[in-house]
């Protein structure tokens, strides 16, 4: 896809030029470290429990998961649509898909870096002679990256639907909450078929049943890839639709 790498590089550089990226990364490393040490103390040195808590079983973890992708993606298309940069990109010899995918990959890379703190702390423990249970650690990281990817793609779609960044962030945030709360919302209705259908798209259960126990299930990988791809496709169509409005 021509121009994809160029757009990816620019967007990633654009993220790191702003101090926000560095502040968020610092917060991530500080939070994960604090959670890890706190649980380690509380459990009397249970490394596995500490790693699990800091990578998927704590409220701050999911708060970051829900809030960060919208903040990262909110300006990527909406603001550029408003200030004319999208017009600049879309009159360059690159496809709409390359524009959307390049920007998405930059946000996704940032999220991967954001969640990498767990890997670093686990590696530090390993180096200090207390090796953690690596499959759940790696699974937790992979799961975090995949869920972030899904949420970033929702953010890209939201950003492509409005030219107001804050509205894009709000839309993406609502989307993320709905994705996570889908099973609870389905539980409000007394319909078995609905519960079964919703269970198949339950992000949280996929995450807990596979990644956090160190399992790599291709079905789950396909699940996340398919939904991420779907939202990116929709975002790409929404960008194309801007030409017709």
């Amino acid at each position: 896809m021509k121009g994809l790498a160029t757009i990816y590089r620019r967007e990633l550089a654009g993220l790191f030029v702003a101090p926000l990226a560095w502040i968020l990364l610092s917060i991530s490393y500080a939070m994960t470290g604090w959670l890890f040490v706190t649980i380690l103390k509380d459990t009397g040195g249970d490394i596995i429990a500490s790693v699990r808590f800091s990578s998927g079983e704590s409220l701050p973890y999911w708060a970051f998961m829900i809030f960060l992708p919208p903040l990262l993606t909110m300006r990527m298309i909406s603001e550029e649509s408003r200030n004319g940069l999208l017009e600049f990109l879309l009159t360059s010899p690159v496809s709409d898909g390359a524009v959307v995918l390049g920007k998405f990959l930059a946000a996704w890379t940032f999220m991967a870096l954001f969640w990498s703190s767990n890997l670093i702390y686990a590696a530090a423990l390993h180096g200090l002679g207390a090796p953690p249970d690596w499959p759940p650690v790696l699974g937790g990281f992979l799961g975090a990256v995949l869920v972030s990817g899904l949420f970033c793609s929702i953010g890209m779609l939201s950003s492509s639907l409005t030219s107001t960044p804050i509205l894009a962030a709000f839309g993406a945030f609502i989307g993320n909450v709905l994705v996570l709360l889908l099973p609870h919302l389905a539980g409000l209705f007394d319909a078995t078929w609905l519960h079964e259908e919703v269970e198949s798209v339950d992000v949280m259960s996929h995450f807990h049943r596979t990644f956090l126990v160190g399992l790599l299930d291709t079905k789950v990988l396909v699940f996340f890839s398919a939904w991420t791809g779907f939202f990116l496709f929709m975002a790409s169509r929404a960008v194309e639709a801007k030409r017709w409005r």
């Binding site: 200030n83 600049f88 009159t91």
Partner: peptide
């Protein structure tokens, strides 16, 4: 193509 708004990345 130079659009009227002169779109350039400020950073």
């Amino acid at each position: 193509y130079l659009a009227e708004t002169v779109p350039l990345y400020r950073e």
